[in-house]
Amino acid sequence: MTSRKLFTKDHGQLDDVDVDDLLTQLSAEELEMLSKEVDPDDRFMPPDQRTNYHCEREATGPVNRKQLIDHINKIALETPDQPEAVPFVAGTVRGKKWIPPEAPVIHTREDEGVSFHLDEEYEQALGTATEEELVDLAAILGFHSMMNQDQYHASLLNKGKVGLGWDGVTKASQPKALPFEPPNPTDPEQAIAKVTDDDAKTIEVCLNNIKLSDDQLTRLFKGLEINTRLEVLSMSNVGLTDRTAELLAQAIEKNSSIRVINVETNQISANGIVRLFRALLVHKSVEEIRASNQITAHVLGNKAEMDITQAIEQNTTLLRVGLFLEFNDARSRVATQLQKNIDRHRLRRTGRAPRNLTAGYILKKALPGQKPVDD
Results as ranks from 00 to 15, higher is better:
residue 357 L to H: 02
residue 209 N to T: 14
residue 266 N to Q: 04
residue 26 L to D: 05
residue 178 L to P: 01
residue 237 N to Y: 11
residue 157 L to K: 07
residue 18 D to G: 05
residue 360 G to P: 01
residue 184 N to L: 15
residue 336 T to E: 09
residue 181 E to K: 15
residue 338 L to V: 06
residue 107 H to S: 07
residue 291 A to L: 00
residue 121 E to P: 04
residue 122 Y to G: 02
residue 146 M to V: 01
residue 251 A to R: 06
residue 49 Q to P: 00
residue 322 G to S: 10
residue 283 H to P: 01
residue 290 R to P: 00
residue 17 V to C: 13
residue 39 D to Q: 15
residue 95 G to D: 11
residue 362 I to P: 01
residue 149 Q to A: 01
residue 177 A to L: 05
residue 194 K to Q: 03
residue 337 Q to A: 14
residue 248 L to F: 07
residue 69 I to Y: 14
residue 123 E to D: 01
residue 176 K to I: 10
residue 115 S to C: 05
residue 79 T to D: 07
residue 17 V to G: 12
residue 261 I to Y: 09
residue 309 T to P: 03
residue 283 H to V: 02
residue 332 S to T: 11
residue 22 L to H: 12
residue 287 E to L: 13
residue 56 E to H: 03
residue 218 T to D: 14
residue 367 L to V: 02
residue 24 T to L: 14
residue 23 L to C: 10
residue 344 R to T: 09
residue 286 V to F: 02
residue 21 D to S: 09
residue 199 D to P: 05
residue 237 N to Q: 11
residue 254 K to M: 15
residue 194 K to I: 00
residue 94 R to D: 00
residue 156 L to T: 10
residue 204 E to P: 01
residue 81 D to E: 14
residue 73 N to T: 06
residue 357 L to D: 04
residue 346 R to Q: 13
residue 267 Q to G: 09
residue 122 Y to K: 12
residue 184 N to F: 03
residue 337 Q to R: 14
residue 196 T to L: 05
residue 97 K to E: 08
residue 178 L to C: 06
residue 15 D to C: 03
residue 286 V to L: 13
residue 319 L to C: 09
residue 329 D to L: 13
residue 274 V to C: 03
residue 60 T to Y: 01
residue 123 E to K: 06
residue 375 D to L: 15
residue 241 T to I: 06
residue 218 T to K: 12
residue 173 S to P: 10
residue 25 Q to N: 07
residue 79 T to E: 10
residue 230 L to M: 09
residue 45 M to P: 08
residue 300 L to Q: 08
residue 303 K to T: 03
residue 359 A to E: 13
residue 223 G to S: 09
residue 237 N to A: 13
residue 124 Q to T: 12
residue 16 D to I: 02
residue 309 T to Y: 06
residue 347 L to M: 15
residue 40 P to L: 15
residue 356 N to E: 05
residue 177 A to H: 00
residue 57 R to M: 07
residue 324 F to D: 15
residue 311 A to E: 10
